[in-house]
Design a protein around this nucleic acid. Sequence first.
DNA 1: ATCTTAACGCAACATCCGTCGCTTTAAGGA
DNA 2: TCCTTAAAGCGACGGATGTTGCGTTAAGAT
Lengths: 234, 234
Amino acid sequence: MTSPENASDLPESGPEAARRRTGGRSARVRAQVVEAVGTLLVESGYDALTVDAVAERAGVHRTTVYRRWRDVGGLLADVLDAAADDGWRPADTGSLEDDLTALNQEVYEALRPGGADAADGYGSGYGSGYGSGSGSGSGGNLTIALIAASFRSAQAAGALTRFWEGRYARSAQVSDRAVERGELRPGVDARALLVTATAPLYQELLLLRSTPDPELPRRAARAACAAARAGVFH
Amino acid sequence: MTSPENASDLPESGPEAARRRTGGRSARVRAQVVEAVGTLLVESGYDALTVDAVAERAGVHRTTVYRRWRDVGGLLADVLDAAADDGWRPADTGSLEDDLTALNQEVYEALRPGGADAADGYGSGYGSGYGSGSGSGSGGNLTIALIAASFRSAQAAGALTRFWEGRYARSAQVSDRAVERGELRPGVDARALLVTATAPLYQELLLLRSTPDPELPRRAARAACAAARAGVFH
DNA sequence: ATCTTAACGCAACATCCGTCGCTTTAAGGA
DNA sequence: TCCTTAAAGCGACGGATGTTGCGTTAAGAT
C-alpha cells in the first residue's frame, strides 16, 4: 500500500527531522478511506466518488481526506498502486495464441459492461473483497471508472500507467516462452506484441462501446500471433 | 450542424405544436457558443471548458447555455455531431499497407501531445479554423480532451461513438479496394481489420501515454496487414 | 403593422467544493 | 509516566456550479 507522501520514500533528509506517525490511528483512517473508495466505486460508479462521500462513508472528516490525498485522483492513485503489486502472473497454456487469448479474456471480463469486480483492467487479483459488480445498477464497471478518472487527474493517470506497465512487463514472459518453444524467432519486441494483442479490446469495449463479442479475445490474439510470425515485431 | 433538440427531428407531433424559432438570434447564439467551445478547448484544454467560461467567451448569458445544452457534455455532443459529417475520405495510395499507414498517421497526429488542431480523433477536416494547437501551453490535445469528456457525459459519449463509427464505415473502402486489387480474399471483415490497425495507437498514445514512436503508425498497419493476409478477419 | 410567445437576459438562491485557522486527540520518544 | 507535536476533528469562509422565477427581446405567423 503506497501512500502519496511516501511515494518517494527518503527517510527525511534532516538529522532531526520530524517523526512521521504511521501507526494506530493513521493506519486505521487510511484503511477505512481506501475501503470506502472501493465500495463507493462499485456501488455507484465514478460520479458518486466525491471526497465528501468517501469521507462520510469512511467515518472520517472531510478535511482529513483533503489533507492526506488532496483530491479524488490522489485517492485512486493510492488504490491503484496498492493493486499494482499483487502477485499477478500471466497464464501458461503452452502456446502463444492461447496465452494471448487468456490474457485478452481477462481484459475482456474487466471491461465488459457487467464486468469483473476488480482493478482487473488487465490482470486479476485486486480487491476480491468487493462483491462482484454484476448488475449493481448505476455502479457501472470499476475498471472503466478508474480509467475515466485517469483523464481527470494527473496523479491517477500516473498510477494507472504504472499499473499497466507492470502488467505488460510481467506478460513479457508470454513472448519469452514462445521464443523458447520455437514459435517465434528471438529478438521479438514483447511489448509491441502485447499491445497489439490487447489494444482491440480496449478500443471496442472502452472507446467504441460496441456490444461485447465473445470471439474478440481470440480473434485479437490470433491477429497478433499472425503479425508476430510474419516478423512485424522484430 | 446538429443541435441537441432536433437530433431526433420530427417536426413536432401535435397539429398545433408550438413553433420553434431557429432563425436570427438563436442561430447566432448557437454559432457563437460552438465557436467558443472550440476556441477554449484549444487554448486551455478540457478543464477550462466550464459552462461559465463558454458563456462569457460567447458573449451569452449562463442560463442560456444551461437551458439549451444542459451541460458541457451537451456542448461537446453538438460540436462532435457537427464534425462528424464533414467530407472526410480515407486516402488512396494504391496498397493496403500504405492506406492503413496513412490512416494511422492521421490518428497519430491527432493523439500526439502537440497534436493536430482538429476533432481529428480519427480523420481530418474539422474546424480547420481553430489555429493549430501546436504547443499552446496548457491547452493540451483537443482530441484527447474530447475523449476525456466522453467519460463524463453520456451525451458526449454517444456523439463520439457516432463520430468514430462514421469514420470506420467510410474507411471500409480501404478494405474493399484491397480486395479489388487482389491483396485480400473477398469476405474480409473490414471493421475488424480497421480496429486492429488503429487500436495500438489509441492504446499507446491515449491510454498508456508512452512517448510517441514515429514508427508506430506503420508498424501497426503492417501488423494488421499480416493478420488480414493470414485470414484472421474472415 | 400587430400579436403571440419562444428564447434570451437577469438576479437571487441553494449547493457543492476545497481551503484555512484553530482546537483536540493520541503516536512515539524520553 | 510525561512531553512534544503529527495528525485528526471542527466550523466557517469564499468561490464555483447549477437552478428558478420573472422581466425583456425579437422570431414568425397573421
